[in-house]
Design a protein around this nucleic acid. Structure first.
Lengths: 146, 146
DNA sequence: AGTGTAGTGATACAAAATATCAAAAAGATT
DNA sequence: AATCTTTTTGATATTTTGTATCACTACACT
């Protein structure tokens, strides 16, 4: 079962309706290999001849983000972009060159934060970790060029 | 030597002028106990009768952020806010209730990411870590209320 | 005090996001 | 399949946020 189907099933469970525009957005989102912004999606849908109102795009992205079917990452240029995700704890590696995102889990950070929380009497409920650098492909591309 | 003086000295070192508006902004910034946005600062300065142009506020915040005298954190509501910081690697604990920010260092995350980078052939150049939860004060306040 | 230049601010402009609300369409019900 | 209830949509207006311009100001240095 692919991402779209899982999303669809989950939204239905939560009592949301599966509308044409939502389907169209879900289908389109999977084409992105790098993080995208709301405005980019709106423009791309337009160009692709998919007719969806801008408000609907914003609303749908927000909905998916709330359920963690989309994550926000910092793009090299500075703004936030959405990436397809799975609900649950996840982190991302973002390539500064090509923008590609790799998700990873394995979160030993919990323990690190645990000790900290104890010292500060701070009840930690979650965290946000994101790393950036240069992906394998871009390193190679760079070497070949030089 | 307080934060403001350190900033002032550093800016002078870097060849920047110490102007009235910059002074005013530096002085005002320290009043915040929670992260603030550019627009909030603009509005607050206005209310306080401190006359500084909006462009200048944006420019000054950007300047300070570039030198890491200000950090950006995710506020509970979702947007980014600035907090007073010290140059160098730093992370933040953000309280979901009151918005208060506590900085911390101790970054064993490096090693965690190091292993990951090796596995994925990804050259990691930096990361962004931020934790959120409930601070000591808000935990207590909550207990008393119940 | 005079001077070169970084910095300012009013304004206009551009971009990004939200509010409104009548109309459309999902999905349940019969 | 026709109806009904309610969510969802989309056109538009509006707000909010951020940037560009450029004549003018006032630092800092001599």
């Amino acid at each position: 079962m692919g991402w779209t189907e899982r999303v669809v099933a989950h939204l239905a469970d939560e009592g949301h309706r599966l509308t044409g525009p939502r389907r169209a957005i879900l289908d389109y989102i999977l084409r992105y290999s790098v993080p995208f912004t709301s405005e980019e999606l709106i423009a791309d849908l337009q160009k692709a001849g998919v007719h969806v109102g801008r408000a609907t795009v914003y609303r749908t992205l927000e909905l998916l983000h709330n359920y963690q079917w989309l994550s926000l990452v910092h793009r090299p240029e500075g703004e936030h972009g959405y990436v397809v995700a799975e609900p649950g704890h996840q982190h991302h590696l973002v390539c500064r060159r090509c923008g590609m995102v790799t998700a990873f889990q394995g979160c030993e950070i919990e323990s690190l934060l645990g000790g900290l929380a104890e010292r500060l009497n701070f009840r930690i409920e979650g965290h946000w970790l994101e790393a950036f650098g240069v992906c394998r492909g871009c390193q190679r591309a760079n070497n070949e060029r030089v």
